[in-house]
């Protein structure tokens, strides 16, 4: 007798079932992603034989048990996941999987953005990357050294200002990307506003809004929980390859500037990956020189945004004024008056 396959959908609050999914993923050597909201599972004889997850607009942890492959189960899992996304008005979707499954997901309407060796790939079901690149090309500037910086600036400090000023000095033109994801303490709108005010003295710079393709929850989901020290090395590499193969060529970027990272292991590790990947000579893309600019210090301590956030919490405003530009200080004090930090 043929046993029946049951599909079901549940959310992350169902801890017992999530644990079962984790066990299943372990068995197919996939890691459970902690930010998944909606799970889909297929069971046969009380055993999980396929699953998938939705996190924001990203589909991931999609797997089918080895003995059940080739029966089209993946299409049903994908139908459930797409329905779950559509029902939440999420239409423009991303998908993480392993490169060897590329053709499966192409059949589901996704196409490749970037892969990293045989380890990981990111796909999308739109043509937004191409559109984004077409728009970037219009902002291309000529020159010998076309510098770039990617920053979250949460919030903008004197350290950031120093980095941008130094980079602008060494570049014919500087492209500054601001991480767009609203997953930090300070909102995107405020972060980019403070950056613009803080770099107003520079004439050879374009401040770009970030996108899904540059340190976002799609390209680099674990970046936003980096305080927990769980940054996924593969995600970092994927993000850097998207930068190297798609964004940088659109703008003709030759250099990327970063601040040295004395404290945060995770960021330091990202910087090391950056050197390895961006500077590597490879067919199909131009190497990008990575320049580390030493952080400036105040009272023997490197200036950082996390220090700013700590001082805010401790209400040490005088100390704070020493490490942020007046424009940021003015904003922070307004926020304090409005009771944001009480």
């Amino acid at each position: 007798m043929k046993s029946e396959i049951q599909f079901s959908q549940f959310d992350s609050t169902n801890i017992r079932r999530v644990r079962k999914i984790k066990e299943f993923l372990d068995s197919v050597e996939l890691e459970l992603s902690e930010d998944i909201e909606i799970y889909v599972s297929a069971k046969e004889d009380e055993q999980i034989i396929a699953c998938g997850g939705l996190s924001g607009k990203i589909l991931k942890c999609i797997a089918v048990a080895p003995h059940k492959r080739g029966e089209g189960l993946i299409l049903t899992v994908m139908t459930y996941l797409l329905n779950a996304a559509y029902n939440r008005d999420r239409k423009e979707l991303f998908l993480f999987s392993k490169p060897k499954y590329l053709s499966f997901f192409e059949e589901c309407g996704f196409h490749l953005i970037q892969r990293y060796e045989n380890e990981i790939m990111l796909m999308e079901n739109t043509h937004n990357l191409q559109e984004y690149k077409d728009n970037l090309i219009k902002l291309k500037k000529d020159g010998g050294v076309i510098g770039s910086i990617v920053m979250n600036a949460n919030p903008f400090t004197l350290g950031h200002q120093h980095l941008v000023t130094e980079a602008a000095k060494r570049s014919s033109w500087l492209h500054l990307f601001v991480v767009k994801e609203d997953a930090s303490e300070f909102k995107f709108k405020d972060r980019i506003d403070l950056i613009k005010k803080g770099v107003a003295h520079l004439k050879n710079i374009t401040v770009h809004e970030g996108s899904d393709y540059i340190i976002s929850k799609a390209t680099f989901p674990t970046y936003f929980i980096k305080d927990k020290g769980k940054v996924n090395d593969l995600h970092a590499k994927l993000d850097l390859y998207i930068y190297k193969n798609h964004l940088a060529p659109a703008l003709g970027i030759t250099h990327r500037f970063v601040g040295t990272e004395p404290y945060c292991k995770v960021t330091n590790n990202y910087n090391q990956n950056m050197k390895k990947i961006l500077e590597k000579e490879e067919a199909g893309s131009k190497p990008i020189k990575v320049v580390e600019i030493p952080r400036i210090e105040f009272a023997q301590k490197a200036i950082s945004a996390s220090r700013v956030r700590a001082l805010l919490k401790e209400e040490k405003y005088e100390e704070l004024a020493n490490i942020v530009p007046p424009t940021t200080m003015e904003f922070l004090m307004k926020e304090v008056v409005n009771g944001r930090y009480n």
Binding site: G72, L75, T76, M78, T79, N83, Y86, K91, E107, C108
Partner: peptide, 10 residues
């Protein structure tokens, strides 16, 4: 607004 129907089955 948006709407959808169907599946990816053969």
């Amino acid at each position: 607004s948006c709407g959808h129907a169907g599946t990816l089955e053969s």
